[in-house]
């Protein structure tokens, strides 16, 4: 479903991704780990189509289409979702109103009739239950005054509403308390249906106890330098990144 080949990208003249390859098949969960500043969020931004990030080489195929040729909104409509590391606040726009606009926009692109208010509320209720979100949150302005954890939970709620084909979660676990971590993970697991794929960016192997990945990759200096299964995450937890950095140094 997603095929990234030799992608090179820079921001403000600084090269961040240096020939990155990744292959994600339907239903798979890929975890991406790596030291701070290694390019994980950059990868997410490039996939989501953020303008500041200049793609200098390589190809990305998403569901048979050239992803790099699509506008950010078309990527979203095609089924790509990014749970932001730092969700943005939109004052005065209620969560519910924002989501209704988004969901119906996506439906329109798929030639489906827009949900009316009643249908929409019903679906929203279901999904709220999924992430144990309080009703009051949907009436508040998007992320405005939300605590760090609430923002992350709101991202997962939005994901549940938008039912993407591929979801990229950028450090959704950071800032979550133990209960919230479990709730958010349950929410993600409930959306695993054998077709939907996930790229889970995280620093902590603990999350991967809840959301069990099929593959774990280490991103370092803009490339995936090591891939393995969930055992790799355990090993990283134990040993840190130094041994990987050394391997890279030796290899180079």
């Amino acid at each position: 479903m997603l095929s990234i080949k030799d992608i090179k990208a820079s921001v403000e003249g600084k090269q961040i991704l240096n020939g990155l390859n990744l292959e994600v098949k339907p239903g798979e969960v890929h975890a991406i780990m790596g030291p701070n500043g290694s390019g994980k969020s950059t990868l997410a931004s490039v996939l989501a189509g953020r303008e500041e990030f200049e793609v200098e080489g390589g190809t990305v195929n998403f569901l048979g289409k050239d992803l790099l040729d699509m506008s950010p909104e078309d990527r979203a409509r095609a089924g790509m979702f990014l749970a932001f590391q730092y969700p943005v606040e939109i004052p005065g726009v209620s969560n519910a109103n924002f989501l209704k606009t988004a969901v119906n926009e996506v439906r329109k692109s798929r030639r489906l009739a827009p949900y009316d208010s009643k249908e929409f509320l019903k679906i929203m209720k279901e999904k709220m239950a999924l992430v144990e979100m309080d009703k009051a949150m949907t009436q508040r302005s998007v992320n405005e005054g939300f605590s760090g954890g609430e923002k992350k939970r709101n991202e997962i709620f939005q994901m549940a509403m938008l039912e993407p084909t591929l979801a990229i979660l950028d450090e959704t676990d950071s800032g979550l308390d133990i209960d919230a971590l479990r709730i958010v993970s349950n929410g993600v697991n409930a959306l695993r249906d054998g077709n939907r794929s996930f790229i889970v960016i995280t620093h902590y192997q603990r999350l991967l106890d809840y959301i069990v990945p099929d593959f774990v990759h280490v991103l370092y200096k803009g490339r995936i330098v090591k891939s393995g299964t969930k055992e790799l995450a355990l090993e990283l937890e134990e040993k840190g990144y130094d041994w990987i950095k050394e391997e890279v140094a030796v290899g180079a």
Binding site: G49, A76, G92, E105, S109, Q158
Partner: peptide, 23 residues
């Protein structure tokens, strides 16, 4: 803010309307 809306499937023009309406 605009990119956040784009990422949820909302076009830039609609995003600006949404943001300004909220404002």
């Amino acid at each position: 803010q605009i990119f956040y809306c784009n990422q949820r499937g909302i076009s830039t023009e609609d995003a600006v309307n949404l943001i300004v309406n909220g404002y």
